[in-house]
């Protein structure tokens, strides 16, 4: 592997700076997009479903699932944008001829996506909280755990577009990513149930589900917001998300470079 110099890091940070500057005019509208989604779900969980006597436990699981899902909110548009760029605008090609190791160009993309994802997603919890105020048991909340799981999840969902894009041969097919991949993973990820209960109900499917990255994001968020009982161990959740992030990055870069036929 090429030796990384100070100049390489300089260019790396400029790539991130450019991405953030390009994102700045969209920051407000994209945050509003997310907030609308969070608000709708938390109003239903916090105000509508309690009136229907839905158990409090389910509502809290669903709320923490909503907060955690905010991290994954941008993964589909990120995949669509990258596919459109690789097959259309080709701004990625400018990145691939810069005097830096190729992996650094992709890594800068992941870091800027990570920062943008985190900026948007961290609003979900404070925004949803007023609607859930009466249902929450604040003694169970661990803010540092919440931050750690959000960071780990944001890493994963920033690296995922690289790998996903490498499997999509045409922008025409990008819609399938949501219906065939992201949506099933999201719902089987335990948006509205814990893995423990899933295992009690359908053990074989729950074991397969251990390969699902959404599961670790949801379980980790529940440990942080509702407390550890009934969820997978917190550090297992964090470790799995980080390992899966590395897998997505390494194989994503390898496959994308092959797809683009880059040096």
């Amino acid at each position: 592997m090429q030796h990384v110099t100070k100049n390489h890091w300089y260019i790396f940070f400029q790539l991130i700076k450019a991405e953030l500057k390009a994102y700045k005019p969209m920051a407000l509208s994209e945050t509003i997009d997310l907030l609308v989604w969070v608000a709708v779900l938390t109003v239903i969980n916090g105000l509508v479903l309690p009136a229907l006597h839905v158990p409090r436990e389910f509502l809290l699981i669903s709320f923490s699932g909503t907060v955690a899902s905010a991290v994954s909110f941008k993964s589909y548009p990120n995949i669509a944008n990258l596919v459109a760029d690789v097959h259309g605008d080709q701004t990625i090609k400018q990145r691939l001829i810069l005097p830096i190791p190729p992996w650094m160009g992709f890594f800068a993309m992941v870091v800027s996506t990570f920062l943008i994802t985190l900026w948007t997603a961290l609003w979900a919890f404070p925004l949803g909280l007023p609607f859930m105020w009466q249902l929450m048991d604040f003694s169970g909340i661990s803010l540092w755990r919440f931050l750690v799981i959000m960071l780990a999840s944001a890493w994963f969902f920033s690296a995922l577009p690289l790998l996903m894009t490498s499997f999509i041969p045409s922008p025409r097919l990008v819609g399938r990513v949501w219906l065939r991949f992201l949506f099933p993973l999201w719902f089987f990820g335990g948006f509205s149930f814990t893995w423990e209960k899933f295992y009690e109900a359908i053990p074989w499917l729950a074991i397969i589900d251990l390969m699902n990255p959404y599961l670790y994001m949801m379980e980790g968020a529940r440990v942080a917001l509702l407390g550890p009982p009934g969820n997978l161990p917190f550090w297992l959740d964090v470790s799995m998300l980080l390992v899966l992030s590395i897998i997505c990055f390494v194989f994503g870069v390898k496959r994308l470079r092959k797809q683009i036929d880059a040096v």
Binding site: I11, Q14, A18, M26, T91, Q94
Partner: peptide
């Protein structure tokens, strides 16, 4: 393949920084 999310001044400015 200019960056459509940046104005042209920034496109040129960042291209310089990238080198």
């Amino acid at each position: 393949n200019l960056n459509n999310y940046l104005n042209l001044r920034d496109n040129l400015y960042f291209a310089g920084l990238f080198y």
